[in-house]
Amino acid sequence: MVIVSPFDLPRPLHPLHSILLAFPLPLFLGALLSDIAYWRTFEIQWANFSSWLIAGGLLVGGFALLWALINVFRSERGYRRRPLAYFAVLLVMWVVGFFNALVHAKDAWATMPEGLYLSVATVLLALAASWIGYSGFRTGEVE
Protein backbone atom coordinates (compact mmCIF):
# COMPACT_ATOMS: atom_id res chain seq x y z
CA MET A 1 0.00 0.00 0.00
CA VAL A 2 1.42 3.33 -1.08
CA ILE A 3 0.57 6.37 0.99
CA VAL A 4 0.34 9.54 -1.03
CA SER A 5 -0.06 12.92 0.57
CA PRO A 6 -2.63 15.32 -0.88
CA PHE A 7 0.20 17.65 -1.89
CA ASP A 8 1.65 15.00 -4.22
CA LEU A 9 -1.50 15.00 -6.32
CA PRO A 10 -1.96 17.69 -8.93
CA ARG A 11 -4.42 20.34 -7.82
CA PRO A 12 -7.46 20.81 -10.02
CA LEU A 13 -8.02 24.08 -11.78
CA HIS A 14 -10.43 26.57 -10.33
CA PRO A 15 -13.74 26.41 -12.27
CA LEU A 16 -13.32 29.96 -13.64
CA HIS A 17 -9.77 29.14 -14.69
CA SER A 18 -11.11 26.05 -16.47
CA ILE A 19 -13.60 28.20 -18.36
CA LEU A 20 -10.87 30.62 -19.40
CA LEU A 21 -8.62 27.77 -20.52
CA ALA A 22 -11.42 26.29 -22.62
CA PHE A 23 -11.39 29.22 -25.07
CA PRO A 24 -7.88 29.57 -26.58
CA LEU A 25 -7.72 26.12 -28.20
CA PRO A 26 -10.96 26.36 -30.22
CA LEU A 27 -10.35 30.02 -31.11
CA PHE A 28 -6.81 29.37 -32.33
CA LEU A 29 -8.01 26.20 -34.08
CA GLY A 30 -10.70 28.23 -35.83
CA ALA A 31 -8.01 30.71 -36.91
CA LEU A 32 -5.95 27.84 -38.31
CA LEU A 33 -8.93 26.46 -40.22
CA SER A 34 -9.75 29.89 -41.65
CA ASP A 35 -6.07 30.31 -42.61
CA ILE A 36 -6.29 27.01 -44.47
CA ALA A 37 -9.49 28.19 -46.15
CA TYR A 38 -7.77 31.43 -47.18
CA TRP A 39 -4.76 29.51 -48.46
CA ARG A 40 -7.08 27.39 -50.63
CA THR A 41 -9.50 30.07 -51.88
CA PHE A 42 -7.77 33.47 -51.49
CA GLU A 43 -11.06 34.94 -50.26
CA ILE A 44 -9.95 37.86 -48.12
CA GLN A 45 -12.78 37.41 -45.61
CA TRP A 46 -11.10 34.21 -44.34
CA ALA A 47 -8.06 36.28 -43.34
CA ASN A 48 -10.38 38.67 -41.49
CA PHE A 49 -11.95 35.74 -39.65
CA SER A 50 -8.47 34.56 -38.63
CA SER A 51 -7.57 37.98 -37.28
CA TRP A 52 -10.67 38.16 -35.10
CA LEU A 53 -10.30 34.60 -33.83
CA ILE A 54 -6.66 35.21 -32.93
CA ALA A 55 -7.63 38.40 -31.09
CA GLY A 56 -10.24 36.49 -29.09
CA GLY A 57 -7.77 33.72 -28.27
CA LEU A 58 -5.23 36.28 -27.09
CA LEU A 59 -7.77 38.10 -24.95
CA VAL A 60 -9.05 35.06 -23.09
CA GLY A 61 -5.63 33.40 -23.13
CA GLY A 62 -4.20 36.49 -21.44
CA PHE A 63 -6.61 36.09 -18.54
CA ALA A 64 -5.77 32.37 -18.29
CA LEU A 65 -2.08 33.32 -18.36
CA LEU A 66 -2.58 35.80 -15.53
CA TRP A 67 -4.40 33.16 -13.47
CA ALA A 68 -1.61 30.66 -14.15
CA LEU A 69 0.97 33.19 -12.93
CA ILE A 70 -0.96 33.64 -9.71
CA ASN A 71 -1.09 29.85 -9.30
CA VAL A 72 2.69 29.66 -9.63
CA PHE A 73 3.09 31.96 -6.64
CA ARG A 74 0.30 30.26 -4.66
CA SER A 75 1.64 26.73 -5.11
CA GLU A 76 3.64 24.97 -2.43
CA ARG A 77 7.36 25.64 -2.59
CA GLY A 78 8.35 22.07 -3.43
CA TYR A 79 5.51 21.52 -5.90
CA ARG A 80 5.95 24.40 -8.35
CA ARG A 81 7.27 22.39 -11.28
CA ARG A 82 3.89 21.58 -12.83
CA PRO A 83 2.35 25.07 -12.40
CA LEU A 84 5.56 26.59 -13.72
CA ALA A 85 5.55 24.34 -16.80
CA TYR A 86 1.88 25.16 -17.38
CA PHE A 87 2.59 28.88 -17.10
CA ALA A 88 5.59 28.62 -19.44
CA VAL A 89 3.59 26.82 -22.14
CA LEU A 90 0.76 29.34 -21.83
CA LEU A 91 3.24 32.20 -22.06
CA VAL A 92 4.89 30.80 -25.19
CA MET A 93 1.42 30.19 -26.68
CA TRP A 94 0.45 33.79 -26.00
CA VAL A 95 3.69 35.22 -27.44
CA VAL A 96 3.46 33.11 -30.61
CA GLY A 97 -0.21 34.07 -30.90
CA PHE A 98 0.73 37.74 -30.54
CA PHE A 99 3.26 37.46 -33.37
CA ASN A 100 0.58 35.64 -35.35
CA ALA A 101 -1.76 38.59 -34.76
CA LEU A 102 0.94 40.96 -36.01
CA VAL A 103 1.40 38.89 -39.16
CA HIS A 104 -2.37 38.83 -39.71
CA ALA A 105 -2.49 42.63 -39.30
CA LYS A 106 -0.68 42.95 -42.62
CA ASP A 107 -2.43 42.87 -45.96
CA ALA A 108 -4.22 39.57 -46.53
CA TRP A 109 -1.92 38.63 -49.42
CA ALA A 110 1.13 39.14 -47.20
CA THR A 111 -0.01 36.82 -44.41
CA MET A 112 0.82 33.60 -46.22
CA PRO A 113 2.66 31.34 -45.48
CA GLU A 114 3.95 32.82 -42.17
CA GLY A 115 0.44 33.21 -40.76
CA LEU A 116 -0.36 29.58 -41.50
CA TYR A 117 2.84 28.34 -39.84
CA LEU A 118 2.30 30.52 -36.77
CA SER A 119 -1.31 29.33 -36.53
CA VAL A 120 -0.17 25.70 -36.51
CA ALA A 121 2.39 26.47 -33.78
CA THR A 122 -0.19 28.35 -31.71
CA VAL A 123 -2.72 25.53 -31.95
CA LEU A 124 -0.13 22.96 -30.86
CA LEU A 125 0.91 25.13 -27.92
CA ALA A 126 -2.74 25.71 -26.94
CA LEU A 127 -3.30 21.96 -27.06
CA ALA A 128 -0.27 21.36 -24.84
CA ALA A 129 -1.40 24.05 -22.37
CA SER A 130 -4.89 22.58 -22.22
CA TRP A 131 -3.48 19.10 -21.71
CA ILE A 132 -1.24 20.22 -18.84
CA GLY A 133 -3.96 22.37 -17.29
CA TYR A 134 -6.79 19.87 -17.41
CA SER A 135 -4.69 16.85 -16.46
CA GLY A 136 -4.52 18.23 -12.93
CA PHE A 137 -8.01 16.98 -12.13
CA ARG A 138 -8.19 14.14 -9.66
CA THR A 139 -9.83 11.23 -11.37
CA GLY A 140 -10.29 8.80 -8.55
CA GLU A 141 -9.53 7.74 -5.06
CA VAL A 142 -5.97 6.88 -4.10
CA GLU A 143 -5.56 3.54 -2.38
Rank of each mutant, 00 (worst) to 15 (best):
I3Q: 07
S5Q: 09
P6L: 08
F7D: 09
D8N: 03
L9Y: 14
R11I: 12
L13A: 07
H14G: 03
H14Y: 12
P15D: 06
L16I: 11
H17I: 04
S18W: 02
S18V: 01
L20F: 15
L20M: 14
L21K: 05
F23I: 12
L25I: 08
L27D: 04
L29I: 01
L29K: 02
L33T: 04
I36L: 14
R40H: 12
Q45R: 12
Q45F: 14
Q45T: 08
Q45W: 13
W46D: 01
A47S: 10
A47Q: 07
A47W: 09
N48P: 00
F49E: 02
S50T: 13
S50I: 08
S51A: 08
S51P: 00
G61W: 11
G62V: 06
L65K: 03
L66F: 15
L66G: 05
E76L: 13
R77P: 00
G78H: 12
Y79L: 04
Y79C: 00
Y86I: 03
F87K: 00
V89N: 04
L90R: 04
V95C: 04
V95L: 14
V96D: 03
A105L: 14
A110V: 05
P113I: 12
Y117I: 15
L118K: 05
V120S: 08
V120F: 15
V123Y: 12
L124E: 05
A126N: 04
L127C: 04
A128D: 03
A128N: 00
A129E: 06
I132S: 05
I132Y: 11
G133I: 09
G133F: 15
F137V: 11
R138I: 09
R138H: 13
T139P: 00
T139M: 10
E141D: 10
V142R: 07
